[in-house]
Design a protein around this nucleic acid. Sequence first.
DNA 1: CATGAATGAGACTTCATTCAT
DNA 2: TATGAATGAAGTCTCATTCAT
Lengths: 201, 201, 201, 201
Amino acid sequence: MTAQLATAATDKRRVILDAAVRVFARQGFHTCRVSDIADDAGVAYGLVYHYFSSKEQILDTLFLERWDVMLVAIAQADATQQAPREKLRAIAAFIIDSYRHDPELMKVIIVEVTRAANTFGRTHLAKIREAYGQIAAIVARAQSEGTFRKEITPEFAALAFYGSIEQVLSGWIFDRMPVDDQELERAKTLIVETICRGLER
Amino acid sequence: MTAQLATAATDKRRVILDAAVRVFARQGFHTCRVSDIADDAGVAYGLVYHYFSSKEQILDTLFLERWDVMLVAIAQADATQQAPREKLRAIAAFIIDSYRHDPELMKVIIVEVTRAANTFGRTHLAKIREAYGQIAAIVARAQSEGTFRKEITPEFAALAFYGSIEQVLSGWIFDRMPVDDQELERAKTLIVETICRGLER
Amino acid sequence: MTAQLATAATDKRRVILDAAVRVFARQGFHTCRVSDIADDAGVAYGLVYHYFSSKEQILDTLFLERWDVMLVAIAQADATQQAPREKLRAIAAFIIDSYRHDPELMKVIIVEVTRAANTFGRTHLAKIREAYGQIAAIVARAQSEGTFRKEITPEFAALAFYGSIEQVLSGWIFDRMPVDDQELERAKTLIVETICRGLER
Amino acid sequence: MTAQLATAATDKRRVILDAAVRVFARQGFHTCRVSDIADDAGVAYGLVYHYFSSKEQILDTLFLERWDVMLVAIAQADATQQAPREKLRAIAAFIIDSYRHDPELMKVIIVEVTRAANTFGRTHLAKIREAYGQIAAIVARAQSEGTFRKEITPEFAALAFYGSIEQVLSGWIFDRMPVDDQELERAKTLIVETICRGLER
DNA sequence: CATGAATGAGACTTCATTCAT
DNA sequence: TATGAATGAAGTCTCATTCAT
């Protein structure tokens, strides 16, 4: 524990990444300068390039770190014995809790990557689609089990489900609602209620 | 008619706007240069600044032109005597038909404005929210009429509804699916089926 | 004539090239900044990039302009009916007169291109060798005519001839001898005396 | 002897110098990074600065080491009782054999120092001219002895002689001729034949 | 209305050098 | 002696915008 703290205190790479989250969230990727990140991190300009080959690679790193965690979370939700609706609720809950835990990071990932498909989203398209694919697979299985009706294609369902969540998060991000925990919990229910009910028999 | 064509043929302002749509769609707003637009339009560099005060203002113009049309379309849908589900279907249909009619323009509006909330979306947030508000109003009325259940807030319903549509369009835009008319029609139904069913009693 | 002067006065591209000669000669290609060229030319920084795609391309242009003139001069010398020794003298004279006429330009070409074979010379190797080839051809013909002896290969003779001249110019360039016209004339004779005598029967 | 080998094996200073020769030859002095040298030498970055005060000093060291050997060789050639032509042949032979023995080192010295008069050549001008001076002295003595004719100044003769050799070596270096021993031997003769014959009575 | 040359601030990236361990 | 993280100055190139014609 002490060792971890000590490490954390001197891991400049991590310090830079954390600063990048704050700076990207505040100023946006295109608008900020590398020096803003260095300043915010309290390190020398050049150190950023000691650890990362470019400003882009910093964002890549942030995205991939987080997105991989989410892919694992989705896979775990799917691996349980719960009903499809509960699996989807778990996924929505994970994303919303991610926002609660680190809203700036989620803002960066959504605004600068998943919804910036012309630039970074392009690069990470395959990775992003993995998530849609996993969700679609859950829907498809629910359909063959007879829990969900077959009128709606799994791919469409996945897009609608994920799109709803992201839009709600976007609302929080840009309307700057002071979001309390209760509202976050309620959102999980509303998403499941709205989307799953449309999917179920 | 001939006069209109003649006008159209020499309305350099329009020529520039149309070129901007193509260039923004192809290269992205941040990545393209003003000269790319001038080149694509076949006009001199400086002429762009004769008609527009900045690169941003070109995008503003494109967005506002189109968004206002959509706000009118939503208002018209709401003004009819149809059932709420049909009103929402009309809105989804309008957006999807907009994509069918000019996919590049829709790509620009979605990618560079509504989903680029850190930059342009910020500027046009109020305008964008007008649309959500109109949709929410339709839901709210349906709830007080008893057609829609009250568990889901109108605001949330609007976000989920609009978010689903935009996500589906994003899929088309970036997965470059060669979309045929049949698929577009089907999408309208799927959206209504998924979302409205979740909203209805 | 008036037109030419007017053109000369406003041809910023030429102004930049002339400034580049001075700056490259004074500070060296690697050591100078593009802003030094712009400053010396009295133009804005960006204008350099309006006319040239990079600092390298400026040097390329200077080299190619001059080298092509020299290739023509060599070809003209060869096209005459003079004795081989006189042809070589004409070539030596051309190079030395080039130095007299514009010592800074010759310095740049020799120091930054022909003798910087690791960088620019590499790029222009083929062009540089054309000159050697033309000289070698003169020697070869003199040999088959019986004027020059055959023990020395034409290629070697060309290198020795050109190398001697360049070394002498380098001496002038870096020892900063205040060179008078008489010395320049004498150098022409010395080169021919030294090298041609070694080549002749 | 064993001790010497052991020392040699761990003399990191030497290891760095040898690596520098390879790296300078391959990438050029201006284009390579200090880290490239450290990597090629297999030592830590900082160690380079333990042994050398700057990147320049590494090149200085390489040049001075070798050039001093050459000055000695020229002095030795001059100290013999041979005819002037044979003295010059010995010098040409020494330079060409240096190339045969370590072409990369010769490439570095010629390309980065003696022919880079704007940068390093400037620093070492005096040292470089010592060689010219020694050669000129040989010529001058040959002239007063009556072996060489007096029309050509000794200084000019030295430049022409050395310039020819360096040009031939440059040809080998950049045309990447696969040079065999026979060709090297022949070059020695050709240089002496070409230049000395022009100098002799 | 039309042209495109001219301007210059701004940002990324590189890399020699230093320094704490 | 050895390591490599840390520093920060410097320079190239870009490009939105202006302006003279």
